[in-house]
């Protein structure tokens, strides 16, 4: 399905481990209202939210997703397999997860193809884009810069729905990065672990160059 741009987009971040709190803080600073959820009771993350993500609301995952315009998947990939796709229907879903067997173990479902394409298949009622997966979580926070800063870095977005990609590019810009559009969700495989831009932060021209050169050697 296609994403309909909203006036004031509410974010629902699913995952309160490494990347979730970082994206939440950046988005709150950029003026987005943010709900955040772990795998269980919001009471379990009330203290984390109050002290580490002040301004975010702790919610059940289903509520955070249902009330959001943009849902950010920031959970370990194996947890995604247990997620009910229902409340994510009709939403823009940003897949910030990675399939990384060297670090998280082998997940058979993700052994073939791009991980975000498989996520999209499982969320057929949502508009899935790949973004925020390729910069280390603490770097993501430290390297954010206002628009126009000379040392501003690029952050990529890949997706098949133009409106969803546009909305994600705006989000990326507002949280401190120059959006780099790398094409379709399938083209987004270039952003995966082991790829030419994974774990590296580059300015927009260098990022484009690295993606361009890397795409030629992509399997």
């Amino acid at each position: 399905m296609r994403y309909q741009q909203r006036q004031r987009e509410r974010l629902g971040i699913l995952g309160s481990g490494h990347i979730g709190p970082v994206v939440a803080r950046l988005a709150l600073s950029a003026g987005y209202p943010v709900d955040i959820a772990a795998s269980g009771d919001p009471d379990d993350i009330a203290l984390i939210t109050e002290l580490v993500i002040p301004g975010a609301r702790p919610r059940w995952a289903s509520d955070a997703a249902a009330d959001a315009d943009i849902v950010i998947l920031a959970m370990p990939l194996h947890r995604f397999l247990d997620l009910d796709p229902g409340p994510l229907g009709g939403k823009l879903v940003i897949d910030a997860m990675n399939y990384w067997p060297a670090s998280d173990g082998v997940l058979t479902v993700f052994e073939q193809g791009g991980s975000s394409e498989i996520v999209a298949q499982r969320l057929a009622g949502s508009s899935v884009v790949k973004a925020l997966n390729h910069i280390g979580y603490h770097e993501l926070e430290e390297q954010a810069r206002p628009a126009g800063a000379p040392d501003r870095k690029a952050a990529a977005v890949a997706g098949d729905d133009r409106a969803a990609v546009d909305a994600t590019a705006r989000l990326i810009d507002r949280i401190g990065y120059d959006p780099a559009r790398v094409g379709s969700l399938a083209a987004g495989r270039i952003l995966q672990p082991g790829g030419p831009v994974f774990g590296i932060t580059l300015g927009l021209p260098e990022f484009g160059q690295a993606v361009h050169e890397g795409a030629r050697s992509l399997p």
Binding site: S16, H18, P21, A38, D44, I45, L47, I48, V52, H138
Partner: peptide, 8 residues
């Protein structure tokens, strides 16, 4: 190493 859930 950076996960607030581990702190809890």
């Amino acid at each position: 190493g950076g996960n607030p859930e581990s702190v809890i």
